[in-house]
Nucleic acid binder design. Structure first.
Lengths: 333, 333
DNA sequence: CTTTTCATGAAAAACGTTTTTCAAAAATAG
DNA sequence: CTATTTTTGAAAAACGTTTTTCATGAAAAG
């Protein structure tokens, strides 16, 4: 089942391949009648351009890469869907690779995207300082790149983020206003930009109300949250609230709290940044700060397209609004 | 930052491009010393083959498409990771598109993959009878294709599945043996192959113990499970067990049961097919039948590679073993 | 030595486009 | 009508590979 080429169309219509190419690409140096004939024949014969040939000629591959630190939380998936929405609509192939929170794999992924000759790259680093050389080399060599969510440190690059700091501040403040006094923070890894910002927001909110800020490392996943509860207990201090780096940590914490017979939110309230569907399927439902994931993906893709079209555009940072969703884990009835 | 080509290497080494190509591709008509020199120069100059040019010549794009009915459950993501594991290791680009359970989008996705000139396609249909014409055309035109999980009806194609029927049978039997007598089934959509199989397994298990099989439509998501509980209540019959088509349906059901004050598993036990991480973060933890997702993805990818290499191989069906995980939602302490 | 075989590498064609250059035809101006 | 401009489309080159064909020189055989 051989694919029909531009030459086939040309000989069928008694035209030259160049004329057919012109007609197909909307070049204006062509008689409307001729264009019409070509377009009809193309449709009739089911002509589909050979992307490889087009790539060869134009130097573009019509492919972009997406490298993300993980792919298992609903969070990232939603962002990816947003990216795909925009790019697929433009006929651009999207290749996603997941670094599994491992900088070594992340580097491999970046190099793979380079081998794949992507026209541009969406990158969300596993942490903010690893793989800088690779990153800088790629940018220096002219690969258009946009970051979202987690971002690297000290690199001038377009990015799409939410305001981790102030949203953290506000959600902690809400907890305080609803009666919590001894709130601790289960932090994310130090190497994650957002973790640092969220911790700052927490500390400043506590400071505003002259409350003591206490942190326990919570990591990225539920195991971390689970363990952090134990460390919290061992500290000997009494707490009536936990603000977790993310949803998974919060869920792990809640599991442990339940095992220990603590009632949520009566004895201890729980809130977290970055909620997905998971927040509403657990009980009690989790109070969260929810970034607009799909929109984030869409915006990221648009920024990238902009950058691919004109690599000299300055690196914009788009800050999207995250919504605070108060739910059962902090709201006593 | 121009990319170095085979020609650059050739002129640098005083060889012809063809010789360089030979050396790079392990052709044996070349003196070991020459090959060595070429390989070293390639490494030194950072030569990376232009994939578009290679495609052009070989007719392969080194790209495969993956079309899945949804991408939000951990289920599909894990399978995708398995697929990526295998294909990325072989330098093949993986392009994933999500049909959002919509046959119209699904068709668009299939056509998009065709435009993208994928070398092969992994396909998991949203339901078993839509888009048959497109599917059959693609296969007829020689596109290598493998299905996993959900499968289309009446099409001879390699596939990777688990034994929905017997696993359903066994898990329902376990519920019966642990004391349940009045188990109902929250079914998946009739158009999904697996839903039909799972329902059969349920019915046959009930029949074996001379128990009445009663079904309520549960759909694909938690909303369906939530609503099904209400329909179950309205039926006026008393139930002490729910076997749900999938995890999301079970979770929806459990949410509603909790609202109604029913204790799980004491008053009513719950189990479901296809568990992810979600099963263990809810309370009580959910008894599930867990297909080996990543392995499923890996096997699917291997079958596809086989089919791409030799399109004439017969269509194998690989049945993987799913594990029954008994957890708190059925096990009374 | 000559002839035959073999190893090695050069030359050139090809893949399907896009794009530049150019020539012919048509339209306009004088 | 001729001269000039504009429109239209053909021809050919190019993108970076792979692959086929061919020529050369060296080694082996006679």
């Amino acid at each position: 089942m051989k694919r029909v080429t531009i030459k086939d169309l040309a000989s069928e219509l008694g035209l030259s391949p160049s004329t057919v190419s012109r007609a197909l690409n909307g070049d204006r140096n062509i008689r409307p009648g001729t264009r019409q004939r070509v377009l009809e024949a193309a449709k009739a014969r089911g002509y589909k351009p050979n992307l490889a040939a087009t790539s060869m000629k134009t130097g573009r591959t019509y492919t972009v890469g997406v490298v993300v630190p993980e792919m298992v939380t609903g969070y990232t998936i939603e962002v990816i869907r947003g990216i795909q929405d925009v790019l697929y609509a433009k006929g651009i192939r999207v290749i996603v690779a997941d670094s599994a929170e491992d900088p070594v794999r992340e580097k491999e992924n970046l190099l793979m995207m380079e081998r794949f000759m992507v026209d541009g790259l969406v990158f969300s680093p596993s942490n903010y300082h690893e793989n800088h050389e690779t990153l800088e080399r790629l940018i220096r060599e002219g690969l258009p790149m946009v970051c979202f969510g987690r971002i690297p440190y000290g690199i001038d690059i377009p990015k799409v983020v939410v305001d981790d700091y102030s949203k953290s501040f506000f959600v902690v403040e809400k907890m305080i206003l609803s009666g919590c006094r001894r709130i601790c923070h289960f932090t994310g890894p130090d190497e994650v930009y957002n973790a640092v910002e969220r911790a700052k927001g927490y500390c400043d909110a506590m400071a505003k109300y002259k409350l003591e800020a206490i942190e326990f490392p919570g990591g990225l996943g539920k195991e971390g949250g689970y363990a952090a509860v134990d460390r919290m207990m061992e500290s000997g201090k009494a707490f009536d609230g936990i603000y977790a780096f993310n949803e998974a940590v919060a869920v792990g914490a809640m599991t442990r709290l339940r095992e220990l017979g603590r009632r949520i939110p009566e004895e201890i309230a729980v809130a977290a940044f970055a909620g997905t569907d998971l927040s509403t399927v657990i009980y009690p439902q989790l109070t969260t700060v929810e970034p607009p994931m799909t929109e984030m993906g869409r915006t990221t893709a648009e920024l990238l397209i902009e950058k691919i079209k004109d690599p000299s555009v300055e690196s914009r940072t788009v800050v999207l609004n995250a919504e605070i969703k108060l739910r059962g884990s902090t709201e006593k009835k």
